[in-house]
Design a protein around this nucleic acid. Structure first.
Length: 310
RNA sequence: GGAGGGGUGGGAGAGUGGCUAAAUCCAGCAGACUGUAAAUCUGCCCGCUUCGGCGUACGGUGGUUCGAAUCCACCCCCCUCCA
């Protein structure tokens, strides 16, 4: 059985509304750990209710890292997160504690375990140029341009605007093709993982939990949070603006849809999102042990007993 | 009793003679995923299938036609209005 010593790392992954935050907190208190957020939207300060971030009271119980740490105007990324997370984990270990990484962003866990290939920074100018170019020439011609310098990108589906733009940006930022960059070796950002676990609730229970939770978010003032975010008049293409729940409520505040429709859409989109997360975990973290639900910290004994040797 | 409208795949809802196993959306399922990842994208979704097809299908029955979800007749059911 792997020992969860100080200076080791525990990874807790799971879809939204699976109870991973509570699990992480319970475990952290039991073993004197600190929690690192691995959720792409919980990093944003502007999303407290809508990202279901731990409450101030919960955060006060022990140290949390990377929750609400980034301003919504920032276009944060998997790369930046992986660097920040590695730093936070190292800091936790330096202080002799266990790092518990909890979240629902599969790519972030992957970045932690396998690393990301070193890629060039893409300036705002190039990002803007890429978007404009795409709009100007259209998807098909844009794809042709990308394939001209990076033929391997033919593997992308023609409709995948985002990845085509990424390939274009990287090439114009560095002269190197994304294909070549992604072939560069990457190194794990943590090498002391003691336990990996996926919380994977039954589908129907998860969907039900999502509906209940969105109602709770509304009751807790989600609409006001969305209003405040809208008032910042940020670029609509920013990640914060795409948060499930926030996007729909903002559409309502903008007069595009009714509140009832916004709520129905938010629930639906959250369910779809959860399904995508489950697909990721099922296929990308297939070897991680699963639990259907986390009952309390005592479950940790079970988790440890079925975890692979780290 | 009279007048009109309507019955289409799990739901909503197009389609009004062949290009229709039947648009689209929803629900559901499966998948991809290296810096926007709560994003972006793909496939399946009547049954069987060696994935090329084959068989049944648009309330029911019968008919017109080379051919019908689409036209006709009758029947059944639903809705609105008049009584």
């Amino acid at each position: 059985m792997p020992a969860i010593n100080r200076k080791t790392t525990v990874l807790i992954a799971g879809p939204t509304a699976s109870g991973k935050s509570a699990a992480a907190l319970a475990l952290a208190e039991k073993i004197d750990g600190e929690i690192v957020n691995a959720d792409a939207l919980q990093v944003y300060r502007d999303l407290y209710i809508l990202s279901a971030r731990p409450s101030p009271a919960e955060e006060a119980r022990l140290r949390h890292h990377l929750y609400g740490a980034i301003d919504g105007e920032v276009r944060y990324s998997a790369g930046e997160w992986s660097r920040d997370a590695a730093r936070a984990i190292a800091d936790i270990h330096r202080r002799g504690k266990t790092a518990i990484v909890a979240g629902g962003t599969g790519l972030y866990f992957r970045a932690l375990e396998k690393g990301l290939s070193e890629a060039p920074e893409v300036s705002d100018e190039i990002r803007k140029a890429a978007a404009e170019r795409f709009e100007k020439v259209g998807a098909a011609a844009f794809r042709d341009e990308v394939l001209a310098f990076d033929p391997e990108m033919a593997r992308l589906k023609p409709a995948d605007r985002q990845r085509h733009i990424r390939a274009w940006e990287v090439f114009h930022a560095s002269g190197a093709t994304l294909s070549n960059i992604q072939r560069r070796p990457s190194a794990p950002l943590v090498d002391n993982i003691a336990v990996r676990i996926v919380i994977e609730p039954p589908r129907d229970a998860l969907y039900a939990a999502i509906d209940v939770r969105f109602d709770a978010m509304i009751a807790a003032g989600a609409l006001e949070e969305a209003r405040a975010l809208l008032a910042r008049a940020l670029d609509p293409s920013l990640p914060v603006m795409k948060a499930v729940g926030a996007a729909e409520l903002i559409a309502h505040l903008g007069g595009e849809i009714s509140l009832d429709d916004a709520i129905a859409l938010a629930r639906r989109n959250t369910r779809r999102f959860a399904k995508r997360q489950l697909t990721w975990f099922r296929n990308q973290t297939a070897l991680w042990p699963r639990v259907a639900a986390w009952r309390d910290a005592a479950d940790f004994a079970f988790v440890a007993s079925v975890s692979p040797q780290g």
